[in-house]
């Protein structure tokens, strides 16, 4: 008999639901993004209310697109954390209530574990063990993945996340929020002719605050000499910023690959959409004989399909949770 799972993700800004059959994604519906764009970015108030308003229509749509009736579901999965308390509460409470009414078990999922397991939504899938760099607005982590439910964080950011570094650099350049995609677009038209220092951080941890400060002083000094410096050199500044952030990420990937002798390399999270990072990783992979895995964008940004995939492995392992579960705002992987 097939295993049908309904998965819900509401840890931060997006409300998402997905239906998974035996580890295969049948539907993956994410709402709210259009609404955020209309407001010029991710607005928490909109997000928080939107979770509440959208969760039922999103779940209905996910079931409908999968052609699955709720009575067929084997278990209900949800993001328990980490995330914003108010946002998590909507998903956790909804999942508990629905599981209770259907008399089916609950599966709690760690958001960052799910980002890594998003690689198993589609072919090609990495083989174990592999390294996964999860990079997003809120997270930057190097993870050693031995098995679906056996992961170890080898390093993480000590200050800003990579997505945040892009956004803050963009802010200083006068770009609108969120600035990451705009820097990516501008960078393609520019040359990385300005250089920002590479931070010396030991081991596999990351730091972006030094680069942020360097960019700031650079822009301040150049603007003092030429008030139009930023406008006149926007594309080159963007290319330089992107090159530095990508090179920080890449140098840690190289180090992790060397130290673990693993050549299966994956990236996950919203910043995996960055074309500079994708290109640099592909190039490095070809040079070093790595197998490189980059999920489709739909599975890089926050989505419920990855929650469902993670939940499928937990289902097989018999890892369920009780009705007394509550959100875990701080939750280390």
């Amino acid at each position: 008999m097939s295993i049908y799972l309904l998965a819900i993700e509401s840890s931060c800004d997006d409300t998402s639901a997905a239906v998974i059959r035996d580890g295969e994604v049948l539907s993956n519906v994410t709402a709210g993004q259009e609404e955020h764009r209309a407001y010029g970015g991710v607005v928490p108030e909109v997000a928080s209310r939107a979770h509440f308003q959208q969760i039922i229509p999103v779940v209905d749509l996910a079931l409908e697109r999968a052609s699955v009736k709720k009575e067929q579901l084997s278990a209900l999965a949800f993001t328990r954390g980490p995330g914003l308390l108010g946002s998590l509460l909507v998903g956790v409470t909804f999942a508990k209530a629905m599981a209770l009414s259907l008399r089916i078990p609950l599966i709690e999922v760690h958001h960052l574990q799910a980002h890594v397991l998003a690689h198993f939504a589609e072919e090609p899938k990495p083989s174990f063990p592999f390294l996964c760099l999860t990079v997003s607005g809120g997270h930057t982590q190097m993870v050693l993945v031995r098995a679906p439910l056996d992961m170890e964080v080898l390093g993480q950011t000590l200050d800003d996340a990579a997505g945040e570094a892009f956004d803050k650099a963009g802010r200083m350049m006068g770009l609108p929020y969120p600035a990451g995609p705009e820097i990516d677009r501008l960078a393609r038209q520019g040359t990385a002719r300005f250089s920002f220092p590479e931070p010396k951080i030991r081991g596999l941890d990351f730091s972006f605050s030094g680069v942020k400060t360097a960019i700031r002083y650079f822009l301040r000094d150049e603007t003092a000499k030429n008030p139009n410096f930023i406008e006149e050199n926007l594309a080159d500044i963007a290319a330089s910023v992107q090159e530095r952030i990508v090179s920080i990420l890449l140098s840690k990937i190289k180090r992790a690959a060397r130290e673990t002798a693993i050549s299966e390399i994956a990236i996950a999270g919203g910043v995996s959409a960055n074309s500079g990072l994708r290109k640099a990783l592909q190039r490095e992979g070809e040079k070093r004989g790595w197998q490189v895995y980059i999920p489709r964008l739909e599975y890089c940004t926050d989505n419920a399909a990855m929650i469902g995939i993670a939940a499928y492995y937990k289902y097989l392992a018999g890892e369920f949770c009780g009705q007394d579960v509550s959100p875990e705002v701080r939750w280390a992987l």
């Binding site: 931060c12 995330g83 914003l84 809120g138 000590l158 997505g163 945040e164 956004d167 705002v329």
Partner: peptide, 16 residues
């Protein structure tokens, strides 16, 4: 002893 990082995206971080 918790890792203190920027909460720009997460809005609120808690440390113990």
């Amino acid at each position: 002893q918790d890792l203190v990082s920027s909460p720009t995206f997460s809005l609120i971080n808690e440390y113990a």
